[in-house]
């Protein structure tokens, strides 16, 4: 099963890597958006799906990564820019996590949302104060193929790390925290450390994605890169796909990016309405997301293979 999944990921990645040479620019940018949400939703689910700490903070990490990229891309080699975005986002998530990860449920969600807004305003203020500007034009940027392959690499890394975490003691600790945090702690899980590490690890991918995507847009400002919609759509994709599964968020990211692009061009308002309805349906009737559907069926077909 794991081997087949690995083969599927490798195959998918190989196909995705060939796309820039096969498709026109519009379709490649669509694929790029798909990959970005694969990275964001998979890494979100790795932490928030397992622990049930629903974070709306993806926009903060994404935006920080984007600004790290804007500040350094002209001076530093490309891999360093991406790594810088990941590291700064992870460090920020680690610090924020120390402050807010003792709160659960709605409080945590609201605080992570507030954190995104705070970050956006802090960056806006800092830019005005020290750079005398709010937006930034990125004149030096790698080719769009490089950006595409970078985002692909980040998405593959996010899936790979999610697979490794799932099979590890760290992943088990995250699941235990989601099931009953206090119980997990009395069984020996250093809950605070695990939560902060998981939150930071998950943020690293959002930071890396932000760093890569920033150059793609050539002009960035805080409103664009700290757009709360990025965080909300990430949560939505992961929840509709199935926050506890690996394939769910992955496939949902593909479907949603395509759907989003299509609907946004054709019916911009219907798109948001459709998203809202989907989220409500998923939360009410599919607590395990779309992945729950095929998992239930797989289990019904093999009743003896009860894990």
């Amino acid at each position: 099963m794991a081997r087949r999944g690995l083969a599927a990921v490798a195959g998918g990645a190989a196909v995705a890597a060939a796309l820039p040479w096969l498709l026109d620019d519009f379709l490649v940018s669509l694929a790029l958006s798909c990959l970005m949400y694969v990275a964001l939703a998979t890494s979100w689910a790795m932490f928030s799906g397992a622990t049930r700490y629903v974070s709306l903070g993806t926009s903060a990490f994404f935006g920080l990564g984007a600004y790290v990229s804007a500040w350094t891309v002209a001076a530093a080699p490309w891999p360093v820019v991406i790594a810088g975005g990941a590291l700064i986002a992870a460090a920020f998530a680690g610090l924020a996590g120390l402050a807010i990860l003792h709160l659960r449920g709605t409080y945590f969600a609201v605080l992570t949302f507030g954190m995104s807004e705070l970050t956006r305003h802090a960056v806006t203020y800092g830019e005005k104060q020290y750079a005398g500007t709010v937006g930034r034009v990125l004149t030096v940027a790698p080719s769009s193929r490089t950006v595409y392959l970078t985002v692909l690499a980040i998405a593959v890394a996010a899936v790979g790390v999610a697979v490794v975490v799932r099979g590890s003691r760290f992943g088990l600790a995250l699941i235990g925290i989601g099931a009953d945090e206090q119980r997990a702690q009395t069984l020996g899980v250093p809950t605070r450390r695990v939560k902060v590490a998981g939150f930071a690890l998950s943020a690293a991918f959002a930071g890396a994605a932000g760093a890569a995507m920033a150059v793609r847009w050539t002009y960035i400002d805080p409103t664009a890169v700290f757009n709360p919609f990025i965080g909300l759509q990430t949560v939505l994709i992961a929840i509709v796909g199935g926050p506890l599964s690996l394939t769910g968020p992955l496939l949902a990211a593909l479907v949603f990016s395509l759907l989003a692009e299509f609907l946004r061009l054709q019916f911009p308002y219907a798109y948001l309405i459709a998203l809202g309805i989907l989220l409500i349906v998923a939360v009410l009737y599919l607590p395990q997301g779309l992945a729950g559907l095929w998992q239930t069926r797989a289990r019904a077909e093999r009743p003896t293979a009860a894990r």
């Binding site: 699941i175 235990g176 099931a179 009953d180 206090q182 119980r183 702690q185 009395t186 069984l187 020996g188 899980v189 250093p190 809950t191 605070r192 009860a306 894990r307």
Partner: peptide, 28 residues
């Protein structure tokens, strides 16, 4: 010290209302 330190030092406990991990199997 936090609870996990007590657990590692050899203090184990149960809860009044069983707090088992509902979605895990008994063995897990």
């Amino acid at each position: 010290k936090p609870a996990h330190v007590f657990a590692r030092a050899g203090i184990a406990r149960t809860f009044q209302t069983p707090r088992v991990f509902a979605d895990m199997t008994v063995a897990e």
